[in-house]
Design a protein around this nucleic acid. Structure first.
Length: 605
RNA sequence: GCCCCAGUAGCUCAGUGGAUAGAGCACCGGCCUCCGGAGCCGGGAGCGCAGGUUCGAGUCCUGCCUGGGGCGCCA
């Protein structure tokens, strides 16, 4: 068992039990789980009894006898057909909480086997509006990068923007038609759809334009300096717009992370040549293909991955293969994550299969694995693809502006509601100013707060459901201050901060363990100690939703605690200090967890 | 036709092969003179269908049904 789970009782208990199980059958899995009957339960005796051909309760009894748990457990009970239930000693839990409080990593392990992880995400197209699919990819990828980095891996962010291909012929010609200056204006303001559609319209309507466009593609591919310069204008103006959206979203991506399709262009001939040399290449209908086993088309025939088209041009498959090689060979990737929509599943599987056939994704230690971190579509409240009323895809900048507007309104509503309540309470004169209540005091940036809440709500809504499923985009639900939402967690955090502010108290010395007398104090403590495992599970499954679930449970545990255990009004100084410590660690974990999701945690709301 | 994904409460979703399937919203009935109502307690209602594996299946396997997506030179 890795030694870095120092603060997690589950890991400590697991280690002890493993030793006990080993005395009966080396390597037998204790199957230790959280339990609703006790703190934890071990189910491993049942399976072990089966393989040993002995009565389960007898085996469980021997496990209990072999385990030394006196320093950890209050009770160890044999139950049912062969379950073993463990209740931890409260003093042990309290010591672990003290260790957690003194740990600047809050129990999040630093991996002892760091690897280079390339995360391919966001990937908008040049001269095309960013859409909700880019949004999902950006948000999910951003959180995964933060988590992997925190765990001590070397994270390489790659924004695989669509900056190459045949459409650029018509885009460049259109740019020339409208004039460079005008084109730059349109693009940098984010009017990308109009630009693209106008180019498309000319292409479809105007023979001469279409012909120019085709010639332009050839010029671009042959590196004609003028053409390349114009292409750069398109790219850089689009990137400027992407940057604005990223800044608005508060994600880690920068221009340094851009590794567009064009980057791989010089490597494509070699990719094809090497596939040929390896004997994997088959010419079919004039196209150069690889047929990875297990893929068939609608007629049941082998399905090709086309690396070079019959006209000699390279398809995106060639680019994707070149990217795999580059990431493994140049960047030293041990793991490559593709945060890409679920519909591209087959294409990616085929690319990975071909890369494996070619030996570009070596197996085993020191090798590299590629994973498709797939996500579902964003649906409107009607359950259909998320579109505007007129049926167009939603512009990302509009969506974020609406998030800000709605968050501002929601915050105003709350301030008004609290103000009204305060007014009613002060029916008799001397209406003391609400002061440090819902109203952020002067000096707090209200638009910054609205941004934190609005953007946080959008992000949390996206991250909190199982990413592979389609998810329903619903403003009212995501901005609610009740339930499993971003604002709820932010509010939980802000309220804890207010305890310290209103009480005028300092954070207690973390080295003194808390007193865990009330059940709610104990339950909260156990939840606090699970943080590291929650973060680890995000990296293992590439599922930020696991962290969301954890944080929501933590906030719920805190609510129960706060309901039952007065903090500032605690009966005595020792209890007060102890509860302040629990509150402080809760707030720190909430803020830290939200940060790993890419969500701000304001101290006041 | 083939392949992939999903199907859990009225709605939105949790649920690492383990005991009695959990939340939130909505609905109904109570409670709290509270450190900022992120309230608290109680109630109804659910694993698409049929087999199988297993001591044990929402979870694994097979078939079917429903919905979404993909299936040769777009990315």
């Amino acid at each position: 068992m890795p030694r870095w789970f120092v603060a997690d009782p589950l890991a400590i208990l697991s280690e002890r039990l493993q030793a006990a199980f080993d005395t009966l059958a080396p390597g037998a899995d204790p199957v230790l789980r959280e339990s609703d009957r006790a703190d934890y339960q071990a189910n491993g005796a049942l399976a072990l009894a089966k393989s040993l051909g002995r009565p389960p309760r007898e085996v469980a009894g021997e496990v209990i006898a072999a385990a030394s748990l006196d320093d950890l457990c209050e009770t160890v009970e044999l139950s049912g057909p062969g379950f073993v239930n463990f209740t931890l000693r409260s003093d042990f839990v309290a010591e672990q909480v003290a260790a957690l409080a003194g740990d600047h990593r809050l129990g999040v392990p630093a991996t002892d086997r760091p690897v280079t992880v390339v995360v391919d995400y966001s990937a908008p197209n040049v001269a095309k509006e960013m859409h909700v699919g880019n949004l999902r990819s950006t948000i999910i990828g951003d959180s995964l990068c933060r988590v992997l980095d925190r765990l001590g891996h070397r994270v390489v962010r790659e924004n695989h923007i669509g900056d190459w291909g045949t459409p650029f012929g018509m885009l460049i010609e259109h740019l020339l038609d409208v004039g460079e200056q005008e084109a730059a204006n349109e693009l940098s303001v984010g009017d990308l759809n109009r630009f693209y559609q106008a180019a498309r319209a000319s292409f479809d309507r105007d023979q001469e334009f279409a012909e120019r466009s085709r010639r332009r593609v050839v010029l671009l591919q042959s590196g004609d300096p003028d053409t390349v310069r114009l292409w750069r204008v398109l790219v850089s103006e689009s990137v400027r717009y992407f940057d604005r959206v990223y800044a608005e979203l508060g994600v880690l991506l920068t221009d340094d992370d851009i590794v567009g399709e064009s980057f791989y262009n010089p490597m494509l001939p070699e990719v094809v040549a090497d596939l040929d040399r390896l004997g994997l290449l088959v010419v079919d209908d004039g196209a150069r293909c690889v047929f990875p086993p297990g893929f068939t088309n609608r007629r049941g025939e082998p399905l090709p991955l086309i690396v070079q088209k019959s006209d000699g041009g390279y398809g995106y498959a060639a680019t994707d293969l070149a990217a795999i090689r580059d990431r493994v060979d140049r960047l030293g990737a041990g793991r490559i994550l593709y945060v890409v929509g679920a519909p591209q599943s087959q294409h990616l599987s085929m690319c990975m299969a071909v890369a494996a056939m070619a030996g570009w994704l070596p197996k085993g230690p020191g090798g590299a694995v590629a994973e498709h971190v797939a996500f579902g579509s964003v649906l409107g409240a009607d359950g259909k693809m998320f579109k505007t009323r007129s049926g167009e895809s939603v512009k990302l900048s509009d969506l974020l502006a609406e998030a800000l507007a709605r968050a501002t309104a929601a915050l105003d509503d709350r301030a008004a509601a609290v103000g009204a309540a305060a007014g009613a309470g002060a029916a008799t004169p001397a209406p003391a100013p609400a002061g440090d209540r819902a109203d952020p005091p002067r000096g707090v940036d209200r638009s910054g707060l609205a941004r934190a809440v609005g953007i946080g709500a959008v992000k949390y809504a996206d991250l909190s459901s199982d990413r592979v499923r389609d998810y329903v985009f619903d403003w009212d639900r995501m901005l609610a201050f009740e339930g499993d939402t971003g604002p709820y967690l932010q509010y939980a955090h802000a309220r804890i901060c207010s305890i310290f502010r209103r009480g005028g108290v300092a954070v207690p010395d973390p080295s003194v363990p808390p007193v865990l007398a009330a059940p709610a104090e104990r339950a909260l403590s156990l939840q606090l100690l699970r943080y590291g495992e929650a973060v680890s599970s995000v990296a293992a499954s590439s599922s930020p939703s696991k962290l969301c679930t954890y944080l929501y449970d933590l906030a719920s545990s805190f609510t129960a605690f706060y309901e039952q255990c007065p903090v500032l009004k605690a009966p005595d100084e020792v209890t007060r200090r102890s509860r302040l410590l629990l509150a402080d660690v809760t707030a720190r974990i909430l803020a830290d967890g939200l940060e790993l999701l890419g969500i701000e945690a304001p101290e006041r709301m």
